[in-house]
């Protein structure tokens, strides 16, 4: 288990981390969500000793993270980068060896992952001659080659087309299924809702929400209310504190306090006209997210 406890980091006047704590478990995918500048990258870099924390601890399986434990971690930095003149397979093999693999194992693993990512016929190309998308794939192979116990990916979905995003999601799921703890950050919500088992939402350097997806949705302080009338021209507003939400065609939607009484609301709406659709449910992750980081 990866445990980040009470991380603090300032850059001059900017507070990047303000007591953030985080846990990622083996066999599960943690989505680390937050708007730009919230402190996601700083927290992830602290795992690899790339940030000198003002305070807080980082631990893996209960032990403080050491250079030796980092050899069992895979990392995809936000700022991607490989040696541009080095051949793809050589480079991934070399990175495997740097994390302690034997030459033959590293070479085999490099070929395996590059093949799986669709780079089987580019093994001897220099990295600089790969397209942007292929460089991203090579970068992913670099984080996977040594079969890490912990995989930390900073914005892995940014810049991917839908097919690339699907392939990425497949690989993350596959890694979690084979026992690794997977953490990835994102500032876009739509991609991740179906993918992660757990979420942690960070804003201004503090974790504002975390837990399993179901738990987070169930314990949200708001509920989503959707109402549709047979006569689409009817305008109705709930008789309680409600904020309008994104609505579909002919459907009106609000976020309302979770303790509101759906029966009373349905009765009130029914007084205006015939109700054809009425939903009272936990909000979508993206709504919780928006709510949390405001």
């Amino acid at each position: 288990m990866l445990a980040l406890e009470a991380l603090h980091k300032r850059y001059g006047d900017v507070v990047a981390l303000d007591g953030a704590s985080l846990a990622a478990h083996r066999g599960r995918i943690l989505g680390f969500l937050g708007p730009n500048g919230a402190g996601k990258t700083t927290a992830m870099r602290s795992v690899f000793g790339l940030v000198s924390l003002d305070d807080g601890t980082t631990a893996w399986d209960g032990e403080p993270i050491s250079p030796a434990s980092r050899l069992r971690f895979g990392y995809m930095p936000e700022q991607r980068g490989l040696y541009p003149k080095m051949r793809v397979a050589d480079q991934i093999t070399w990175l495997g060896r740097l994390r302690g693999m034997a030459v033959s194992d590293a070479s085999e693993a490099a070929r395996h992952w590059l093949g799986r990512l669709g780079l089987a016929n580019r093994l001897d190309d220099r990295v600089e001659h790969l397209s942007h998308g292929n460089q991203q794939r090579a970068q992913l192979a670099a984080s996977l080659v040594h079969d890490p116990e912990l995989l930390v990916l900073d914005e892995p979905f940014s810049g991917l087309d839908p097919m690339g995003a699907d392939a990425m999601a497949d690989i993350l799921r596959d890694r979690a299924e084979s026992g690794a703890a997977v953490v990835f950050s994102s500032h876009q919500l739509d991609v991740v809702e179906d993918l992660c088992d757990d979420v942690a939402v960070i804003a201004d350097g503090r974790i504002v929400l975390d837990g399993t997806i179901e738990g987070v949705r169930a314990s949200a302080p708001k509920r989503r209310l959707e109402v549709a009338f047979a006569d689409p021209t009817i305008i109705w507003t709930p008789p309680i504190a409600a904020e309008p939400s994104r609505n579909g065609r002919g459907v009106q939607a609000w976020l309302i306090p979770a303790d509101a009484d759906p029966g009373a609301l349905l009765e009130d709406a029914g007084g205006r006209g015939r109700v054809t659709q009425f939903t009272f449910s936990p909000p979508a992750l993206s709504e919780i997210f928006r709510e949390a980081v405001q």
Partner: peptide
Amino acid sequence: LEEKSTRVVELVVSSTS
């Protein structure tokens, strides 16, 4: 400079000193 400008340094230093 090349390691810095291509940012590969971050990857390398995440696995070694």
